[in-house]
Design a binder for these strands. Structure first.
Lengths: 341, 341
DNA sequence: GAATTTCTGATTTACGTACCTCAAAAACTG
DNA sequence: CAGTTTTTGAGGTACGTAAATCAGAAATTC
C-alpha cells in the first residue's frame, strides 16, 4: 500500500504535526528530528499525494502567459490555444492570465516580466526575445522562485526552467535537406525570408539551413536574407521585389511568419515557373497553399502541444515535481500535402 | 466559485444523499426527483471533481495491455514504454498488467481478450489484428462496458472506443511522395517490404503508397510485396533475393518491422549503387542507418506517446469524461538525418 | 385505512493532506 | 535552579466526494 503521512509519523516515531512541519518546511523542528523524518520519508518511499494536497489546500495554479501581439496566424493560433486551455481551468485547477506585448520589443517584454513580480503567479510562460535585458529579467524571476517556461523562442543561460518549443537548428537543417533533395542536385538560387534576426528561433533556423546547404548542397546559392518582421504585407513586397531582381530563383525558405504575403506573391508566378517553397507553421493559408501546390513542404510546431506542455511543466515546477522529458519534447512536424491532418 | 454537490442539493431542494444517488446511478430515486437534480446539475454547470472522487473512492484504474510477443525493436520498445508507464502507477492511480500474445495470431488475441472478461479491468489496450473473430470479440468487450483502445494497428467498426496510432494511409502516401520527389522523376523500380498483410496498418500503408505512386509518379514501378513477418532474418533473405533478381532497384519502402535484416542486406551494396530507402519506426538500428546514410528517411510513430495517450483515453472513458482529440492525435514523425532527436 | 413498499433526509465516516490551536515536554538561558 | 524559549504531541477542522446507516415521509397496494 502507498505510504501516507501517518505511516511516516509512525515509522519516524513522531507525531503527524511534526511530519507536516517537515513536509511543508514549517519552522519549529530540531535538526535531528527533521532528519529522522526525512529518513523515514526516503525509507518508505513516500510521495505526497498531489491530488489530496491540492484538495486540502484549495489550491489553484495561477499562470501568466506573455504573448506578442502579432497579427500573424501562428501567434493568433498560439493565443487561441492558451484560451482553449483556459476553458479547462476548473478541472485542472489553473487560473491563466494572458498579457499582450508588442512584438520584437525587448523593453516591452522586460516591463511585462517585471510587472509579473508585483503579484507573483505560480508560473510564467513567455515568448522570449534574445537580449541581455530580457535575460537579466528572466534571471530575476528565477531568483524570485517563479517557475518560468519559454515558448516558441528560447533564451538559454537565463535561468528559465524549461523551453517549450522545437529545436530550431534541426528545423533549419531539415528544411535545407528537403530543399536540396527536392531540387535534385541542380544548381539553384534560393531566397530566405525571415521575420527578425532579433529572435533566436529565426536565427537558429537560418543557421541550420545555411550550414547544411553549405556542407551538403554546395550547388545551391543562398541570397541575402529578407526580414519581413512576420508581417504579411511587408513579406509580399520583399518577395515580389526579390523575384523581380532574381527571376531564376529556384527555391524559397520562409522561416518565419507572415506567409500570407509570401503566398500572394507566389500566386502571381506561372505554374511551371514556380520555385520550390518550404515554409514554417501550418496555418489556414499555408495549409491551402500546400494542398494547392504553391508550397511544397511545411515545417510545423504544434502550438497546442506547446501550450499544454508549458502548463504541465509549470505545474510540475510549482509542485517541485520532475518533468517527463520524453513527453515534453516538442517535435518538428513535417507536412507534405499527403499527410495533412 | 465551482459548484459542489452541496450546491446542487440546495439548489434542487433535496438532500446530499439524493444527489449522491443520482450522480452515482444508485437506485431509490423517483423519476421526478432525479430530473430535478439533473436539472440543477445542468443549471449550475456542475462537474464532478475527479480528484476528490478518486480520493474518496480509493480508486485505482486497472488497465490490461495486450501486446504481441514480437522480437522486433518496435514492439520491444512499445512494451518498454508500457513498463515505464507502470513506474508512474502510484501517483497516477493506475495498475497496469501486460499480457503477451503470439504475433499475427487472431485466435491467440481472441483468447487473451476473452480472458479479460473473467475479471474485467477498467480498460483494455491491444494491438489489433483485422479479423472477424477479433472484431466480434472486441464488440463483446464493448457490450460488457469495458473501455477499449487499439494500439498501433486499428480494427474499425468493432465498437472499440479509440485508436492510439497513426493514420497509416497518410503514412504510406507520405512515403510515396518522399520517394517520388527524392528520386527526381527518373524511371525507377521500387521494392516494398511488409510484415504481414493480416494487420491493417501494413495494408493501409501499402495502399497509400501505391495510390500516390500510381497517381503522381507513374514513372515508378512497384515490385510485388515481400512479406517479412517483421522478422529480421526473413527480411534479410527476402531483400537479398530481390536484389539478386532486380539489381536495378532504385528504391525501397520498408513499411513494417524487421529492419535490422533489411539494413544488413543494404550494407552489402556498394555506396554508389544503393537504392533510396524509406523505412518505418525509429529504432537503434534504423537510427544508425539513417545517420550513416543507408536509409534516407524514417517515418515514425512515437510509442511513448501512444502508450500515454492510450492510458489517458482509457482513464477518461472509465470516468465517462470527454477526450481532448487534438492532444490524442498521434502524429507521423518524419526523420531525416538532420532532425534526429 | 392499514399495511407495505418505495423514496428521501439527516448524519456519519472515510480518503490523504494542510493548517490551526493549545498544552506539554524538552532544551536552552542566566 | 527557575525562567524562558524552542520543540513536539494531540487533536480538531477543512477540502469535495463516496458510501453507508437509519429514521421518517410519501407513495402504492390490498
Amino acid at each position: 500500500m502507498k505510504p501516507t503521512v501517518h505511516d511516516i509519523a509512525r515509522s519516524a516515531g513522531v507525531s503527524l504535526a511534526t511530519v507536516d512541519r517537515v513536509l511543508n518546511g514549517r519552522p519549529g523542528v530540531r535538526r535531528v528530528t527533521r532528519q529522522k523524518v526525512e529518513g523515514a520519508i526516503v525509507a518508505l518511499g513516500y510521495v505526497r499525494d498531489v491530488a489530496a494536497a491540492n484538495l486540502a489546500k484549495g489550491r489553484t495554479y495561477g499562470f501568466t502567459f506573455i504573448l506578442p501581439g502579432n497579427d500573424n496566424s501562428f501567434m493568433i493560433g498560439l493565443a487561441d490555444e492558451v484560451r482553449t486551455a483556459m476553458a479547462r481551468s476548473i478541472p485542472e485547477r489553473t487560473h491563466i492570465r494572458i498579457v499582450d506585448v508588442p512584438p520584437f520589443d525587448p523593453a516591452a517584454l522586460v516591463a511585462a516580466l517585471e510587472a509579473v513580480l508585483e503579484a507573483p503567479p505560480s508560473g510564467v510562460a513567455f515568448v522570449a526575445i534574445d537580449s541581455p535585458e530580457v535575460r537579466a529579467m528572466t534571471a530575476r524571476l528565477a531568483a524570485a522562485g517563479i517557475p518560468t517556461v519559454t515558448l516558441v523562442s528560447d533564451i538559454p543561460d537565463s535561468g528559465r526552467d524549461h523551453y517549450a518549443g522545437i529545436d530550431n537548428i534541426a528545423a533549419g537543417r531539415t528544411a535545407a535537406s528537403l530543399m536540396g533533395r527536392f531540387l535534385g542536385r541542380r544548381p539553384a538560387t534560393v531566397a530566405v525570408l525571415a521575420g527578425s534576426m532579433l529572435v533566436r528561433d529565426h536565427r537558429e533556423r537560418l543557421e541550420g539551413f545555411s550550414t547544411v546547404i553549405r556542407e551538403a548542397f554546395p550547388e545551391i546559392v543562398i541570397l541575402p536574407v529578407l526580414e519581413g518582421r512576420d508581417d504579411p504585407a511587408l513579406a509580399e513586397m520583399l518577395i515580389a521585389e526579390a523575384l523581380r531582381q532574381n527571376p531564376q530563383i529556384g527555391g524559397m525558405y520562409s522561416l518565419g511568419a507572415g506567409n500570407r504575403g509570401l503566398i500572394r506573391a507566389l500566386a502571381t508566378i506561372e505554374r511551371g515557373e514556380r520555385p520550390l517553397v518550404i515554409a514554417h507553421e501550418l496555418t489556414t493559408s499555408t495549409r491551402t497553399a500546400l494542398a494547392g501546390g504553391l508550397i511544397d513542404a511545411v515545417l510545423n510546431q504544434d502550438a497546442g502541444h506547446e501550450v499544454r506542455s508549458a502548463i504541465r511543466v509549470l505545474k510540475a515546477k510549482a509542485d517541485g515535481l520532475p518533468v517527463l522529458a520524453a513527453q515534453e519534447r516538442i517535435r518538428i512536424d513535417i507536412f507534405l500535402k499527403d499527410n495533412l491532418p
